[in-house]
Design a binder for these strands. Structure first.
Lengths: 220, 220, 220, 220
DNA sequence: CATGAATGAGCCTTCATTCAT
DNA sequence: CATGAATGAAGGCTCATTCAT
């Protein structure tokens, strides 16, 4: 309830958490190098030395931020996407796309998952390795099984893999290239509704492609 | 008369150019903030004060680098892509995709256009506005005319626009998410041949989607 | 009832002692300023705040370390050096030199007396005053009485005092200038045997000087 | 004439020199670790960044200080000590002792050679290696030839070496243990006159020892 | 009583920039 | 015109110390 967390009993964990959330914001906004420990601590109402005390150094804090950001994203958008067991491939694809879009565009004050990942793409840190294994590979598998379901059992593995990437690329694009798309089409806003429409389009485009490709495969 | 004459008479312009090329490299590799004027000058065999002398300040140099990088990319990969006037839409799409991929993956010492753009996506500078108008909007128009050619005249404008983005997203993806794809599939190398195959897949996927969508439109 | 009980009942005094011994080592190795309370506490398996709790502050700990180090040295090398009452002046001189050498080169884990004193020479603290009175003055008197015994009753007081310092200086030298002597003569090791030989030489040199000076005095 | 050296043409070299002299003082007074770049720069009327600009870092400055301090000592107290070629061994010994004492007690504002060396004894840095080779080994040789001259050709090499150290130790002692001697004998001041008397005593003591030892050798 | 958490001053270093030459 | 020298702000980090528990 008070501004200074030191009055609460759990001030240790509380300060730690505040630091992580503040850092997520600052790292997302400025990048690792340009982010300053001082700014992060100021946002968290903590002392300059708090980062070194709790996380060893700036890098340690960053690693913790990435972990936390991933955990948040997973909790908020669980990998099964709340689908029924017997959902059709089409429904699964739509759900996957929709959930991924939401996850990536979530700028909630606690995570900034999308922005942090975008920065990892440009300047990968050691944290990326585990991130790929823990988060991205499972999702890639999930998507590939959907794609295979749609392409049929005769599709070569490579086609499945590449088509999966074609689907994901469309999702990621709107986040990554937002500065360009917003300049190209200023009317475009990423409201909840717009994201829904986006999901519709990506699903439609991808389904069309996959169905047609499936048909092409049978023809051969 | 001085002890250290600047090699040649044209050293002024030459130094300027060397600075820009060195800076392109460093900005691409480290980002604007983390790039240091000292490193740039060292690479260009120039004095520490040279940047401020030639470009006013670090930002001025950065703007010049972006301009130069765009100019290089345009010269190397001209917008018409060397197509004949009467080429089919399919051929045009393939050419567009292929040229774009090449352009984005060109890490030539003089440009680093792809990496610089990637960084602009995450932290847009003032330079992005003109970049969008001069480079991206024309390309977007070009692509949209191709897409419209494939979707047919009845397709709503928005569908054309979004489908264009679906095509571009697939191209951009492999560059932007390279750190992830390389970790997911370590065998994947972006050799010339691989880029060709990539272009084939993106073209195939996109054509399949567009044709199927065109069919869907007619059915209605 | 607490989760981490402090091992034993006597942990208070035990921790104190552990701190002193750890501090002796660290202060000797790094010097007062460069020694960090954290390192000392870590070596003593104690909390960071333990130093301030037990000794007020870093300086308080240091003072206690010096006291302890002196006490240890005294116990191990008692001032009478185990000589018989009726030993000759020559024997006394030899015993004094030998005992002093041993004391100064003792790097036992509990004392580091020599190194600590060396540092006091360079940056005297308040503790030095009492150290001089309690330790050095008695030893100086002891040595001077030996020297007077050898120089004879006619020797002026100042000659006695200075000759005493000439003796002590030879002893101290090998400890203080060890880094240099070891570089000059790499073979030189301060084994027990070597220290014995050292004592022999210093005794021989000093006795020769004192006898000759005594003869010179009588001649006048 | 002005406080700010930037008005002089040679401000670069001037600032450098001022920094070295200020640093010599501060390093001698506080030791390497405890000395602060800020204090050094303040004393030299220079900016905090000046040290890094001129010497790379604190260690670089320290190395330069040691070099400079050695050069000063050499210029002021040249190794030949201004003796005539045919001087007797006794005269040479006296000159050596006197010159060494002066050198070690010189607290001139430019060098602080003695104090810096004392600190090197306690915490040797990389610089000590070359210092030993360039300065101490030549002096040790010089002294040993004098000692051999006095002990005669029959003296074993080791006796010569150790006797040399016995001489040097007496010289060094008064500087190194000054805090103790001054507390033991507060009247003792290291005025020019006192240093002369010190030289007399050390010479007398050493000559007495060497002559007596030479006699002992012959007797055998 | 004894301690884990938190503090703020201080450290060295790097930086883009400016100035006199 | 072009540059080497110098600047001061800001960076991350370590430190001895304090305080509530």
């Amino acid at each position: 309830m008070s501004a200074k967390p030191s009055q609460l009993g759990s001030s240790n964990a509380a300060t730690r958490q505040l630091l992580i959330e503040a850092a997520a914001h600052v790292f997302a906004e400025r990048g690792f190098k340009a982010a300053s420990v001082r700014e992060i601590c100021a946002r968290a109402n903590a002392n300059v030395a708090a980062v070194n005390y709790h996380f060893g150094d700036k890098e340690g804090l960053y690693a913790e931020v990435l972990k936390y950001s991933l955990r948040c994203a997973r909790e908020k958008y669980p990998p099964d996407m709340g689908l029924e067991r017997d959902a059709s491939w089409e429904a699964r694809l739509r759900a996957f796309i929709h959930a991924f879009l939401l996850r990536i565009f979530d700028d909630g004050p606690q995570a900034c998952h999308g922005k942090l990942l975008s920065r990892e793409m440009i300047e990968p840190t050691n944290a990326l390795d585990s991130l790929v294994e823990e988060e991205m590979r499972p999702m890639a598998h999930q998507l590939q099984s959907i794609v295979r379901g749609l392409l049929g059992p005769d599709a070569p593995e490579e086609t499945v893999r590449r088509s999966g990437m074609s689907v994901i690329s469309q999702i990621v694009f709107y986040h990554h290239c937002r500065p360009v798309t917003q300049r190209l089409y200023p009317k475009m806003q990423f409201s909840q509704k717009e994201i829904d429409r986006l999901a519709d389009h990506i699903t439609e485009f991808s389904l069309a492609a996959l169905k047609q490709m499936s048909r092409n495969l049978k023809r051969k």
